[in-house]
Design a protein around this nucleic acid. Structure first.
Length: 199
DNA sequence: ATATCGATTATCT
DNA sequence: GATAATCGATATG
C-alpha cells in the first residue's frame, strides 16, 4: 500500500484494509494473514483514542505522517498493532484486530504457543489484537515507528486483488468512552473475527 | 453457551 | 494511584 492509501480518514482506511494481506517478512520466510477485522480511532474528536488528549511520548506516531506503525502495550500483557492515518499533525489510526492466516502457520503456532489440532485452535492464532500481534512477533521495541509502506520494511500490507464480498460495522470492543460509535469493521461470517460467535 | 474475574505494567493524572 | 483499544481460565446453566 502507498502513502496515499493511509492519508485518508481512519474510517475509510479501515474499511479499505479489510481483505488486504498483512505480511511479516522474517529471514526464515514470510508470515501473512488476510485482514478481517479492524477498528478506527479518530484522534481529537474521539474520546476513546489515545490521541484524544493531545501529543504525548506514547502516541507521537499518530501525529506524524500516515502509514507508520503505532504499537502500544495493554493490560500488562499484550501488544496491539496500529497504523497512523491522516496527514502530518492530524492524529488518527486503525487498530488491526484479526486476520486469517495464510503463510507461516507453523511459525505463528509456535509464537502463540498453540499446538494445532482442530479449527478451534486455528482460530486462536490470529483472532483478537493481542493474539494477532503475538503471532506476527509484533512488539514496540521491534516495530514502533516503522514505515508500513516501505518496500524495505519487514512489515507491510499488500493488495493481492482479493475483495471481501461483504463488510459490516459495529461498536468497538473493550472501550468505555464513545462506546456507541460504530467504528469497528469486519468481514461478516469470517471465522477469525474476534469476539463471541453470534447466530 | 454465556458470565465473571485475575493477570500484569506502561502511561497519564 | 487508577486505568486500560485484552486474553484465557474458571464457573455456571
Amino acid at each position: 500500500m502507498t502513502r496515499e492509501f493511509f492519508i485518508r480518514d481512519p474510517r475509510t482506511v479501515g474499511r479499505a484494509l479489510l481483505g488486504k494481506v498483512l505480511v511479516r517478512r522474517e529471514k526464515s520466510g514470510p508470515l501473512s494473514a488476510r485482514i478481517v477485522e479492524v477498528e478506527a480511532y479518530l484522534g481529537k474528536t474521539d474520546p476513546a483514542s489515545h490521541s484524544y488528549r493531545g501529543l504525548t511520548a506514547r502516541n507521537a506516531i499518530m501525529f506524524g505522517p500516515p502509514g507508520f506503525v503505532y504499537v502500544y502495550f495493554i493490560y500488562g500483557n499484550h501488544w496491539c498493532l496500529n497504523v497512523s492515518c491522516w496527514p502530518v499533525g492530524r492524529a488518527g489510526a486503525v487498530l488491526f484486530r484479526a486476520g486469517e492466516p495464510i503463510e507461516g502457520i507453523e511459525k505463528m503456532s509456535a509464537a502463540r504457543g498453540i499446538v494445532l489440532s482442530n479449527d478451534r485452535d486455528a482460530r486462536r492464532l490470529t483472532s483478537g489484537p493481542g493474539n494477532l500481534s503475538q503471532a506476527l512477533g509484533i512488539t514496540r521495541e521491534r516495530d514502533n515507528g516503522k514505515d508500513l509502506t516501505s518496500a524495505a520494511s519487514d512489515l507491510v500490507v499488500l493488495d493481492d486483488g482479493f475483495h471481501p464480498s461483504k463488510i459490516a460495522a459495529s461498536v468497538r470492543i473493550g472501550i468505555t468512552k464513545a462506546a456507541e460509535r460504530p467504528l469497528r469493521y469486519f468481514v461478516p461470517g469470517n471465522w477469525f473475527v474476534s469476539g463471541p460467535k453470534v447466530l
